[in-house]
């Protein structure tokens, strides 16, 4: 479960951005809509503990992130949160499979390789385990990014603009996959986007 309460953030020399309150219960799927430059990524980073809010509180599974030490926050994130970035980023020296393993390397849970295999086949990436990520098409990279966010079985998935680069058909597919795989993994999902096409796929929606 995720709860953001009266969050504010100020970049140096700029006015504070005020963020709406947001609550998602366990296994709920929601969307946060907002125009470019409104602070969508900032919100996502605050919620995932990468950025410290100047005001307000974030609770993930009942734990307030600001109460954790830097080290605790790192390992909490490693175990509970899966992130999907706007721009797919991978470790280029490692294979597709090793990139998935890498995502699990820093949490105390040991990687569930059977589950990871299932993820790859669900996302239509079977047989590409030994490729390098940069050898995949951009669609495949997007799906790998999703697989990686799910690989360590986090309880919360945060996706940043997962559909912005896709056409209508693929947009629908990715959102479908995202929702389906999060439901199968019993993970809470929050998608942050400016893409209005995605809105009707979610019951819970918030606006910046």
């Amino acid at each position: 479960m995720l709860e953001a309460r009266s969050l504010q953030f100020a970049y140096p020399g700029q006015k504070s951005i005020l963020f709406p309150d947001l609550t998602l219960h366990t296994e709920e799927q929601g969307i946060l809509l907002g125009q470019s430059g409104k602070g969508k990524t900032t919100f996502l980073h605050m919620v995932s503990g990468l950025l410290k809010p100047s005001q307000g509180h974030v609770f993930v599974n009942g734990i307030e992130l600001s109460q954790l030490s830097a080290r605790e926050l790192d390992s909490f994130r490693g175990e509970q949160i899966g992130l999907m970035f706007q721009k797919p980023v991978f470790a280029p020296a490692l294979s597709v499979w090793e990139n998935l393993l890498l995502a699990c390397s820093f949490s105390s849970k040991s990687p569930d390789q059977v589950y990871m295999k299932d993820l790859l086949s669900l996302l239509n990436l079977s047989g590409k385990e030994r490729r390098k990520p940069q050898q995949l098409s951009s669609g495949e990279q997007q799906r790998l990014s999703l697989a990686r966010a799910l690989a360590h079985k986090p309880s919360l998935i945060l996706a940043d603009e997962p559909t912005s680069a896709l056409d209508d058909e693929n947009c629908e597919k990715v959102i479908h996959l995202l929702k389906k795989s999060c439901a199968e993994a019993s993970a809470t999902l929050l998608v942050v986007t400016h893409d209005q096409r995605v809105k009707q796929s979610f019951q819970r929606s918030f606006t910046l």
Partner: peptide, 16 residues
């Protein structure tokens, strides 16, 4: 540095 940042999101401390 992207890769390093990525490792941080996976829960790696800067020391790791």
């Amino acid at each position: 540095r992207y890769e390093m940042a990525l490792l941080r999101t996976f829960g790696a401390s800067p020391f790791k």
